[in-house]
């Protein structure tokens, strides 16, 4: 893998993880981090430049989606305001 490509992979990996960790929702946050890690690990041994290019493009698209969704979730507008009747729970989260 060319050095520039290696740098791009690392940058994308870090950016995706950083963005995923911002998800306010526990389940989405955990999924995003786990999915990013597993995807990069799965393709760690990839040598075909065409395939690498394709995967990087996919990662970049995912980063865009992640950024948009995290931004929207962080506005707090995705929560129903009156949830007082719901039993409280999840002390461990």
């Amino acid at each position: 893998m060319a050095a520039s490509s290696k740098l791009r992979v690392l940058t994308l990996y870090r950016a995706l993880l950083r963005e995923g960790r911002k998800f306010p929702s526990y389940n989405y946050r955990e999924y995003a981090v786990r999915r990013v890690r597993d995807a990069f690990r799965e393709h760690a041994g990839e040598t075909d430049p065409d395939e690498i290019h394709k995967l990087l493009q996919k990662a970049e698209d995912s980063l865009e989606v992640l950024r948009r969704q995290v931004t929207l979730y962080m506005t707090g507008s995705f929560h129903v305001k009156s949830s007082k009747n719901l039993p409280s729970s999840l002390r461990f989260l």
Partner: peptide, 29 residues
């Protein structure tokens, strides 16, 4: 898809955000 979202609330302080989360505790699904 091309227009980046720029919402002012992104810069909400972390503490405020954590409080919000605490309020929203819900059962496991």
């Amino acid at each position: 898809r091309q227009v980046p979202l720029r919402l002012s609330t992104v810069a909400r302080p972390a503490q405020d955000h954590a409080d919000k989360q605490k309020e929203e505790l819900r059962p496991l699904y």
